[in-house]
Write a protein that binds this DNA or RNA. Structure first.
Length: 632
RNA sequence: GCUGCCGUAGCUCAGUGGUAGAGCACCCCCUUGGUAAGGGGGAGGUCGUAAGUUCAAUCCUUACCGGCAGCACCA
């Protein structure tokens, strides 16, 4: 048992019997057991010694079982209400569950309400949930006979050495490995159906599209309520909403997938760009700029035409030339590299570009400014010798982590993506690239997880995933080792031996794209940007028009000190102005009335604070100038 | 791209088979008020686009465009 004690039974016992032997309270609370760490049904009969723990609603293993049972209850409800529906898969998720149904008629929101109602009835019926193990062919026959063709199909996919188990509750029988609760009553009522959406059978767009009904499920009502509240909070910090509220940017249908940056949003953008430009310069990158439109021949040579033409915007010209808007900057950077014959002494050569790129993303992929068709990569390519991969990777990892820290992201994970099924280059080249990158990330001292088959077509990559204030993960940075493209496009340097060699190219980005990273920063801070990033850092608010002239002096002094500052001289009450500029998340409010004008002071109120502080104007300017300074 | 839902004033939304309404924002007037909404008045909309049904369409039907959610995609 978890407490280290041993319990002995004369013969085989079930989990339920073990729980009962410990105490009647536990017997009642028991939902399942774990046997040597693996979750099992409460009815599982043990005939050997094992490490056993009783799973109750508070156990970490309980939620997944509850959610999976909720999926079954939903399937049972659907089969009762809409018997013509076929069931397919219904797993637990991080916050609940879903079940994919095959049915010609779409489920309406009213249907969802009915299904949810029926689920509650099923819980109240407290139907026993029982496990049965069936012969494979008999099970397939059974599901075919009851018209569950997807289930019957799936049975043949299950490895031969696995048992075919069915779970029965009421009149509903599902193919399932389990485990499950002992009865539907144990599920409780802390669940809610959320939405219906499309999903492909077995995740493949070529297959039939099913209807996926999503629900959320929790151990108790309190947790459910907490989760629903969290959803509301997440909605409040949605960058699309804040972009509108803070007047940062907009998108409109004539330019789907492109951003209209408003003055405040563009100020934020330029502030971040200026910051990154300083960091790159300090790390010995040279900034360049390459053309937007390039002839098809270059994209054919680079391999993009063959593999990614679908995603490129192309233009046919009258003289039979075809131009393409660049979807990435790498081939352009190689052109600059090729303008000189380079010595190995010049390497590593780091070329950076805030590269404006266009990719024709599928319409369903567009999302605010996070996933767009026109975006700007903080792209750079490091041309180096193979033996420099390690030191360059280590330096890049250090730079990236430091940049992320400056934006308030401390929790960063690294994923290693190796060769994809469709790729350029020989396997030996891939062996070399993957080996070098692995050695480098290990030298950087960063733990990483594998992401098999997810590399770029020209090489393996590291992906840097940061976690935001509400626990969501975002992949932003990347570093990719490329032995292929420099060769395809004939980049070369002269080595110590006087011979021509092909350099290795490291593709790397920290933000990924400005648009996406800005969206992440906005959501991370819920719009309450740190002082150095705020588009308007300070506002001078007048109490009466008598202070207008003085307010203008205050503004000028702050502006001269480098702050972004505006005045609000409107004929409104100070309450109104404080409220308005608290809602628009101005970090600093400087209130001035007759008293301040006479004394040469300001009343400083910091966003989120309740009080104000009276300061001499010069002292305030000195202090705020210091506080508003960007990092590094 | 696929499935479902949605598209009404600058914004958030209500509404009806007989050509529209609220709050906020905007403009004007009164108010000069000391830290999260002072009062009054006014202006503002070919109801996403195009066809169709109908005596009559913002409302019903279809297509298209765009948005949202999910799936697929993300070099």
């Amino acid at each position: 048992m978890p407490d280290g004690k041993q319990r002995h039974f004369p013969g085989p016992v079930t989990g339920a019997e073990i729980a009962a032997a410990i105490g009647p309270g536990l017997a009642k609370a028991a939902l399942a057991i774990t046997v040597d760490g693996a979750p099992r049904d409460l009815a599982t009969r043990l005939s050997r010694d094992a490490t056993v723990a009783i799973v109750t609603a508070t156990s970490p293993e309980a939620l997944e079982i509850i959610r999976h049972d909720a999926a079954h209850a939903m399937a049972e409800a659907v089969k009762e209400l809409y018997p013509e529906t076929q069931v397919t898969f219904g797993p637990a998720t991080d916050t609940g569950f879903y079940y994919d149904f095959a049915r010609d008629t779409p489920f309406t929101p009213e249907d969802l309400a009915r299904i949810e109602q029926r689920m509650h009835e099923i819980v109240d019926r407290n139907e026993p949930v029982t496990r049965e193990e069936w012969d494979r062919d008999r099970a397939a026959e059974f599901f075919n006979a009851i018209g569950e063709k997807y289930k019957a199909e799936w049975i043949h996919e299950i490895p031969k050495d696995e048992v075919i188990s069915l779970y029965r509750q009421g009149n509903f029988v599902d193919l399932c490995t389990g485990p499950h609760l002992p009865s539907t009553g144990k599920l409780g009522h802390a669940f809610k159906l959320m939405k219906v959406a499309g999903a492909y059978w077995r995740g493949d767009a070529r297959n039939a599209q099913l209807q996926r009904v999503y629900g959320t499920a929790w151990a108790n009502e309190k947790e459910l309520k907490h989760y629903l509240l969290q959803l509301e909070e997440a909605e409040k910090r949605d960058h699309r909403r804040l972009g509108k509220e803070l007047d940062l940017f907009h998108v409109q249908e004539e330019a789907a997938g492109s951003v209209f940056w408003h003055p405040y949003g563009w100020t934020l953008y330029r502030t971040m760009e200026a910051y990154l430009r300083r960091r790159l310069a300090a790390a010995n990158y040279a900034e360049i700029r390459t053309p937007q439109l390039l002839d098809r021949s270059l994209w054919i040579a680079s391999g993009h035409w063959e593999k990614f033409r679908e995603h490129m915007f192309t233009f046919a010209e009258s003289d039979e030339k075809t131009l393409a808007l660049k979807p990435m900057s790498c081939p352009g950077h190689i052109q600059i590299f090729k303008q000189h014959l380079h010595s190995y002494r010049e390497l590593p050569l780091r070329l950076a570009e805030f590269g404006s790129c266009h990719r024709n993303e599928p319409s369903g992929a567009l999302h605010g400014i996070m996933r767009v068709r026109a975006f700007t990569q903080d792209d750079a390519h490091i041309f180096c010798m193979p033996e420099q991969i390690t030191s360059e990777t280590v330096a890049f990892c250090r730079l990236l982590l430091s940049v992320y820290r400056d934006f308030g992201f401390e929790d960063v994970r690294v994923k290693f993506s190796d060769r994809p099924p469709v790729r350029a280059g020989a396997d030996a080249t891939w062996d070399r690239a993957e080996g070098a990158l692995k050695a480098a990330v290990e030298a950087a001292g960063l733990p990483y997880t594998m992401n098999p088959g997810e590399g770029a077509f020209y090489g393996p990559k590291l992906e840097f995933v940061l976690r935001d204030a509400i626990g969501r993960d975002w992949q932003c940075g990347t570093l990719q080792v490329d032995f292929v493209m420099p060769e395809l496009l004939d980049a070369a340097y002269i080595g110590e031996d006087g011979q021509r060699h092909t350099p290795v190219m490291l593709h790397r980005a920290i933000f990924g794209s400005f648009e996406r990273f800005i969206a992440i920063v906005i959501e991370h801070y819920a719009g309450k940007l740190p002082l150095w990033l705020a588009p308007v850092q300070a506002r001078v608010l007048t109490i009466t028009s008598e202070a207008d002239g003085y307010a203008e002096q205050v503004r000028e002094k702050l502006a001269a000190a480098g702050l972004r500052v505006e005045t609000d001289l409107r004929n409104e009450k100070i309450n109104y102005k404080v409220r308005e500029h608290s809602l628009d998340k101005t970090p600093l409010l400087l209130v001035v009335g007759k008293r301040e004008a006479d004394d040469g002071t300001v009343a400083l109120r910091v966003l989120g604070g309740k009080d104000q502080e009276i300061l001499a104007l010069d002292a305030a300017v000195a202090r705020l100038k210091d506080k508003a300074r960007p990092p590094a």
